[in-house]
Amino acid sequence: MDLTTLIIQLVTGAIGGNVAGGLLKNFNLGTLGNSIAGIVGGGLGGQIIAALTGSAAAGAGAAAGGLDLTSIIGSIGSGGIGGAVLMIIVGLIKSKMGGGKTS
C-alpha cells in the first residue's frame, strides 16, 4: 500500500462517517466525532479489505507501482464503508452507555 491509497481511504472514511451520521441521527457523534471515527474506520477498513482480498480490491495497482481505476474504486469503497461502519459502532456504544441525545 502506498501513501496515495491510504489518503484516499482516510478521506473517504471521513466522508462515509459523516454520511452515516447524517442518515442515522441516533448514532450521530457530531461532525468532528463522525470525521474522526470515519478516518480511523477508513484506514482500518482499507487494511482489512486488502488483507481479505489479497490486495486485489484495495491497492493492487498501488502495490504494482501505480494507481489504476480498480484500485482507486476499491480504496474509495473500502474506506467509505469502513468509516461508516466504525462510526455506527461507536455511536451505538455511546447510545447504549447513556450518552445518546435526548429530545
Rank of each mutant, 00 (worst) to 15 (best):
G54E: 08
G61D: 01
K96V: 09
A20F: 06
Q9G: 02
K25R: 14
G79E: 03
T12N: 10
M87P: 00
G83D: 02
G74I: 05
I73D: 07
G54N: 07
A14N: 04
A62L: 07
M97H: 07
G30R: 05
G80N: 08
L6W: 13
L92M: 11
G41C: 09
L23M: 13
K101Q: 13
K94F: 12
L24N: 02
G83F: 01
T4V: 06
G65N: 11
M1A: 12
M87C: 03
T31F: 10
L29Y: 05
T5D: 11
D2Q: 11
G46D: 09
G83Y: 04
S78F: 05
V19T: 02
G33Q: 00
G46A: 15
G91T: 10
A62M: 06
A51H: 14
G17H: 09
T12G: 03
K94H: 07
A51N: 13
G98H: 13
A63G: 13
G54I: 10
L10M: 12
I76F: 06
V40Y: 08
A62S: 11
G45E: 08
D68N: 14
L52V: 12
S78D: 03
G99W: 05
G13S: 08
V90N: 05
G79H: 05
D68Q: 02
G30M: 08
